[in-house]
Amino acid sequence: MKEWVSLHQQHRALYDAAGNGWSGDVRKRLVRLADRGHCEASVRGRFTPRRFREFEAWRISPADGSSRGVRLLNVPDLESASLIVEALAQPRSERLLKFTCMVEGLRPDSTTWTVAIHLEAEGDDRKGNGACGHPSFHCHVGPDLDARPRVRVPLPDIGPMAALDWLIATLVPGWEPAPWPAVAREVDGGAPART
């Protein structure tokens, strides 16, 4: 059990670690995606908050009121896809209270495919039966979020931005925040990495 307790503690530290700079970090990724032709250019002005006194609810506002998030373009393995990013933050305490990023897509055979990363709400992060079956920071992959069996892959404490990078890297060719040569320089002091 101690591994799961430890993981849960690491997950809980993520709420504090985000600070307030995470929203700019999300937008930078969206702008970079747009600049590389993987989503609509209008995304630059669409990741935006609504403020409810102490809370801010963030989302990518729909361009035309009909779709959710932003449409992803030139994603080789999906016919169509949308990226959704939602978050709840408390700027005063510099805490990120909830975070979701997900892609809903259609495969070439017209079946649905979803990948979603959830950082559960702070204070409400003990869902399900325990830290193994329902970790506070997890990832779903499947036809949709409700399909059985409901898979929640535990994520390490890489934080929401790195997780968003992972999600994008899964779909967008060339999106690699940690290329092996750079990793090798860090890890091996310059020795070539195994491929």
């Binding site: 409810f52 102490e54 609810a57 989302r59 959710r68 959704i84 939602e86 909830k98 809903e104 979603a116």
Partner: peptide
């Protein structure tokens, strides 16, 4: 409720409003 994208988004709005 099922954990659909729409309802996840709604849960964020509800939390923000609940805090008021």
């Amino acid at each position: 409720f099922p954990e659909t994208p729409e309802l996840i988004v709604r849960s964020y709005r509800a939390t923000a409003l609940e805090g008021e």
